[in-house]
């Protein structure tokens, strides 16, 4: 389980309950608005994968939200030659835009498809849409989820968590013994993705063992 060395700092965890995701994509919209991700180029910091399963009358649809896992054993950090990828003291994996050269070593290293190119064209388009002054993407770089670091350090939830209408996305602190979200992780009900990779993620899923697929009526 992910550890933060300094016990005075929060040990944030992100929990996704696959039982309650209905695939409304509000999380993607909230994230794109909050973090100015280039939705016009179909690039997202968080996505909801969808898959149809079953046959005949017994069909269903799976909704699978995903984002950067903020691995504590971090493949992208080990691949980055410039130090652009770094971890905050709380273990949140970030990108320093000014140091990124766009070699894409981190993109190929990431086992969770959590990174994408914020191209020169995207920077220009972003400045057009949000204005030069309010654009948070000033130079081309590799972009990724930051757990909305600017929000969580002020005591707020990440934008996708705050927006999720079914509370499928939850935010907790493992260092808080009374945190019910952290309890899901501590109890083992919430599990990380692809444990075999040894990446020690900070994102956990409830419902991985019996992936719940909604019937057409339920999805409605």
């Amino acid at each position: 389980m992910s550890e933060v060395k300094n016990k005075n700092l929060p040990n944030w965890v992100f929990v996704i309950d696959l039982n309650t995701c209905v695939g409304c994509n509000a999380c993607m919209a909230a994230c794109a608005q909050e973090n100015q991700s280039p939705y016009w180029a179909e690039k997202w910091r968080t996505k909801v994968e969808q898959a149809e399963v079953g046959k005949g009358d017994n069909i269903g649809r799976i909704f699978f939200p995903r984002l950067c896992m903020h691995c504590q054993n971090t493949p992208c950090y080990y691949a980055c030659p410039t130090g652009a990828t770094y971890k905050t003291p709380e273990g949140v994996v970030m990108v320093n835009q000014d140091l990124c050269i766009g070699c894409e070593a981190c993109v190929t290293a990431c086992p969770y498809d959590a990174r994408y190119r914020y191209d020169y064209e995207d920077v220009v388009k972003n400045k057009e849409l949000f204005g030069e002054e309010f654009s948070i993407h000033q130079v081309p770089h590799i972009d990724k989820c930051t757990f909305c670091y600017h929000r969580i350090t002020k005591g707020l939830e990440p934008a996708c968590v705050a927006t999720c209408p079914t509370d499928c996305r939850m935010w907790g602190d493992l260092n808080d013994p009374n945190d019910p979200v952290a309890d899901l992780v501590r109890s083992g009900r919430a599990k990380p993705l692809a444990v075999y990779l040894g990446t020690d993620p900070k994102v956990f899923y409830v419902g991985l063992d019996t992936l719940p697929a909604k019937t057409p009526e339920e999805a409605e």
Binding site: N19, V53, I59, E104, D113, D209, T210, P212, A213
Partner: peptide
């Protein structure tokens, strides 16, 4: 709700970064 074993699902996707 149809319960499915998650382990049967994997996605294979070609990388398009280094060509």
């Amino acid at each position: 709700m149809i319960a499915l074993d998650y382990s049967q699902f994997l996605t294979f996707e070609p990388q398009h970064h280094w060509r």
